[in-house]
Simulated scan of single mutants.
Amino acid sequence: MNIAYLSIGSNIGDRLHHLKEAVRALHSHEGIDVTKISSIYETAPVGYTEQADFLNLAVSIATSLDPFELLAACQQIENGLGRVREIRWGPRTVDLDILLYNNDNIEAENLIVPHPRMGERAFVLVPLLEIAPSILHPVTGTPFAVEAPDEEGVLLWKKVKEVGQLL
């Protein structure tokens, strides 16, 4: 069984509903078991800033899917929840990103793992470190760290203690 970490975000419509539906869709997939879930954080947009704030969380999954099958499953969930790609880093109903997959280093045209910008983004690291506080970067072997996340626009929105709270 493979272990992967995903980041999930939403900033259009009922953001909490979209997060819940994404977690449910992951968990109901035959090859995926959501094993841990972070609290939900409200975060300022990055890149394209003329949009609403996001709700973000991270999940740990156990999966029998290979990384490319997992990517396809994530994209299918995004599409099923109305994701439209019009503006890079623009508004979205839901966004699922594969952050880590085992300790693999994957560089393909359609998938890079570890996620190339995760170390720069508190909105990714804060939820990830909540569920995996001692996780190391698979390439460098160094711990992920975040300093003063509140100053970077990451605020606790809803405390989540177990996966079942969002299923």
Rank of each mutant, 00 (worst) to 15 (best):
M1N: 07
M1G: 05
N2C: 04
N2D: 06
I3R: 14
I3A: 02
L6D: 06
L6Y: 13
I8E: 06
G9Y: 09
S10Y: 02
N11C: 03
I12W: 04
I12C: 02
D14P: 06
R15Y: 06
L16D: 00
L16C: 01
H17W: 07
H18F: 14
H18T: 01
H18N: 15
H27T: 00
H27S: 11
H29D: 11
H29M: 01
D33C: 15
D33Y: 14
V34M: 09
V34C: 07
T35S: 15
K36S: 08
K36P: 00
K36I: 00
I37M: 14
S38L: 07
S38N: 08
S39M: 06
S39R: 12
S39K: 12
Y41T: 03
Y41P: 02
A44E: 13
A44C: 08
A44R: 14
G47K: 14
Y48N: 11
T49F: 11
T49S: 11
A52D: 15
A52F: 12
D53V: 05
L55M: 10
L57T: 09
A58W: 07
A58H: 04
S60A: 15
A62T: 10
L65H: 14
D66Q: 11
D66L: 06
F68N: 13
E69P: 02
L70F: 12
L71N: 10
L71E: 07
C74D: 04
C74S: 12
Q75R: 15
Q75S: 03
I77E: 03
E78D: 02
N79R: 14
N79P: 00
L81S: 05
L81M: 06
G82Y: 11
R83H: 07
E86S: 12
I87A: 03
W89V: 00
G90P: 01
P91T: 01
R92D: 01
T93Q: 06
V94K: 04
L96C: 00
L96D: 00
L96R: 02
D97C: 06
D97Y: 10
I98T: 03
I98F: 07
L99K: 03
L100F: 02
L100C: 01
Y101R: 08
N102A: 01
N102S: 04
N103E: 10
N103Q: 13
D104W: 07
D104V: 00
I106R: 11
E107V: 11
E107S: 11
A108Q: 13
A108D: 09
E109G: 04
N110P: 00
L111I: 03
I112K: 14
P114S: 05
H115F: 06
G119K: 13
G119R: 14
G119P: 02
R121T: 00
R121A: 00
R121I: 00
F123I: 01
V124E: 02
V124C: 04
L125I: 03
V126E: 04
V126Y: 10
P127W: 07
I131R: 10
I131Q: 08
A132S: 14
A132Y: 13
P133L: 08
I135F: 05
L136S: 04
H137R: 10
T140M: 10
T142V: 04
T142Q: 15
F144R: 08
V146Y: 13
E147T: 13
A148W: 09
P149E: 07
P149C: 10
E152V: 00
V154R: 13
L156Y: 06
W157A: 05
K158G: 03
K159T: 11
K159I: 02
E162Q: 15
E162D: 13
E162K: 15
G164R: 15
Q165R: 12
L167R: 13
